[in-house]
Design a protein around this nucleic acid. Sequence first.
DNA 1: CCTACCGATCGGTAGG
DNA 2: CCTACCGATCGGTAGG
Lengths: 225, 225
Amino acid sequence: MSPRRSSTEAGQTRAAILARGVEVASVEGLEGLTIGRLAADLGLSKSGLLGHFGSKEALQLAVVDAAAERFFRETATDEVGISPGLPRLRAMCEAWISHVEREVFPGGCFFTAAASEYDDRNGPVRDAVAGLVGLWERDLRLHVRLAVADGDLPAGTDPDQVVFELVGHMLALNHALRLHRDPGATFRARRAIDSRLASPRASLPTNRAMSPVVTSGDHRATSPA
Amino acid sequence: MSPRRSSTEAGQTRAAILARGVEVASVEGLEGLTIGRLAADLGLSKSGLLGHFGSKEALQLAVVDAAAERFFRETATDEVGISPGLPRLRAMCEAWISHVEREVFPGGCFFTAAASEYDDRNGPVRDAVAGLVGLWERDLRLHVRLAVADGDLPAGTDPDQVVFELVGHMLALNHALRLHRDPGATFRARRAIDSRLASPRASLPTNRAMSPVVTSGDHRATSPA
DNA sequence: CCTACCGATCGGTAGG
DNA sequence: CCTACCGATCGGTAGG
């Protein structure tokens, strides 16, 4: 009694499949996301669901993309007037913490779970996950560089080192929250990130008073290390 | 032509199953470890393999225990004359780095993968994984406390905070190594750990000269915060 | 979007 | 430790 829907209805169905798929995959993994289970959750037949994607792998890729869209929307910090460089870096970290704290994905960070599940495999799903995680880390690195150029992080700071450590604090938070169910870890993550990003001028008030306040978007490095 | 082996032969078979099971699970996950595949790898029948454990869950628990035995053997630092406190803490971190660098488990850190796979589930496998990870972190925390008591870390240091950050650096290393296949991360992990554990007296040589060298096992905290 | 089906594989059992 | 089997579920297809 429900065959051949219109294309707008089909689009809604597809969106519903992806929304549910992201939820299920964040908890059970992208491999644990089975077509039959997902179809049953949504009151569809398996072939009805599969018709939207063609194969399980295509479904997984669509779910990864939908999760990325959600993640970047929830952690967006570029539309709220936050200056590039250290302020944006702090805001990105805080947005990440917030998104696991609010359980935007019911299983914690979607990409932490997907990365761990696929990091030892090959193929399009692994590539998609690695690429999207790389985008996030590249953005962090950009703002570390700007922070150094602004003098908000010490000259000579290695951006890759800072990103490595910030990502570590995020992974540690997801780990403590999900495995140990320890909400106190949220405080520790914020503290770790704050101390890693502590401004060198915070303890040098004379220098701080002389440094220009950054409000514009002009961020050409004047003296990179 | 190979029924009813002796009990020593059965023990060897069981050990071979577990050794292979740990390898497979570290790459494919504990759920991806299927009885049929494992039996085929070892030239056994499914029921022959299952006879050693009784159920898949029992097999998974035995594999987790075997992985723990392996992990704690590979990261053991208590038999080589390394003093408790900061030296042991450093040695534990270095042993952890080394075990992922050497690929003791073909998929990187077994417990990082297992934790991520099971952290949103309930049941004995999750409990076993969480308990074993907790043991490792508890041991780290013990030596952080001793390091503080020895004056090798600043008085007032929060042990949970230090363990959180050290675990983060380990997770970040596993992440970079497995997902991004970036061997340079090993250097960054060592650097991050070194700077987190930098002795406060290293930059205060006058104090350092006055502090006793720790070689004994007597580690009662004299002035905890 | 459905029903009806496919071969393959899953965990597990019976019986020896 | 084996063969022989079980029902359930997997991803996927045919045909409408």
